[in-house]
């Protein structure tokens, strides 16, 4: 396949960026999207040009490092991560637009790489449990009802890639934050911090400059792990409950 790529190039955080056009030939439909970008970068290096910077790590769809907006969709046309997207999803002669995540809380570092440490700070604000560490506890010590375990797992699937923020017209981090809150709030292990967790994580989310939720549903559509939109509804309920409880104290 022969493709035309229009890629966002930006030297550093302070520089102005622009779309640059590149041609790539001999692209196999079996290549992953990132392998196709590797091919482009090899050619650029041979020509003595600066290769395109992009984030990637496991390339198995589980780490959440890859982050590209492809033809206006976070992670491209398939419901998966960019690393798990294959070139068979495109046609010979296609023009593909590749842009970084866009949100003021995710500043561009270089080309397609953005700084997602705002997510780390949201996790630090409450995405943990206080429990004795050491060897694994006996599994029957804390029984968890099956529906709760399934619910927690569904939310624990979030890999923190930030596609929800990239897709949201308001640059909101509600789906990410709600996945983390619901994952721990439903489990007995997360119960001691149930109220402080949701209050602190939402406060940190606002602090980072993410937008608010207008329930467009773009986040849940873009999420490679299928975190449902009702996750946000449930976090809202948890937040209102925690605020009422805090008000009584």
């Amino acid at each position: 396949m022969k493709l035309t790529l229009r890629v966002w190039r930006q030297k550093n955080a302070d520089a102005d960026g622009a779309m640059s056009t590149y041609e790539v030939d001999n692209v196999s439909p079996d290549m992953s999207f990132l392998e196709m970008l590797d091919t482009l970068n090899e050619e650029l290096i041979l020509k003595g040009e600066d290769p395109v910077a992009f984030d990637h790590d496991c390339r198995e769809g589980i780490c959440g490092a890859c982050s590209l907006v492809i033809n206006g969709d976070a992670h491209g046309p398939e419901r998966t991560t960019t690393c798990q997207l294959h070139m068979r999803s495109f046609k010979d002669g296609d023009t593909i637009d590749i842009e970084p995540w866009r949100a003021s809380a995710f500043p561009v570092i270089k080309d397609l790489v953005v700084d997602r440490s705002a997510f780390d700070r949201i996790i630090q604000a409450g995405g943990y449990i206080t429990a004795p560490t050491g060897s694994a506890p006996e599994a029957h010590a804390t029984p968890v009802p099956k529906p709760d375990a399934d619910y927690a797992f569904e939310h624990a699937e979030c890999i923190g890639c930030g596609a929800c923020v990239a897709a949201c017209p308001n640059g909101a981090a509600m789906l990410f934050t709600s996945a983390k809150v619901n994952h721990l709030n439903v489990l007995p292990q997360g119960a001691p911090e149930r109220e402080t967790r949701v209050l602190d994580m939402v406060a940190q989310m606002d602090e980072e400059g993410f937008g608010g939720c207008t329930l467009t549903g773009e986040c849940a559509t873009a999420c490679p792990k299928g975190i449902p939109l009702t996750s946000i509804t449930n976090m809202n309920r948890e937040w209102l409950r925690a605020t009422r409880k805090a008000g009584k104290r």
């Binding site: 907006v69 033809n71 017209p169 937008g211 608010g212 549903g217 773009e218």
Partner: peptide, 16 residues
């Protein structure tokens, strides 16, 4: 919300 998304995507799609 507008401040949280200052730069628009070049490739636009009809949304919502």
């Amino acid at each position: 919300d507008i401040k949280a998304r200052p730069s628009k995507y070049v490739h636009k799609k009809p949304r919502a």
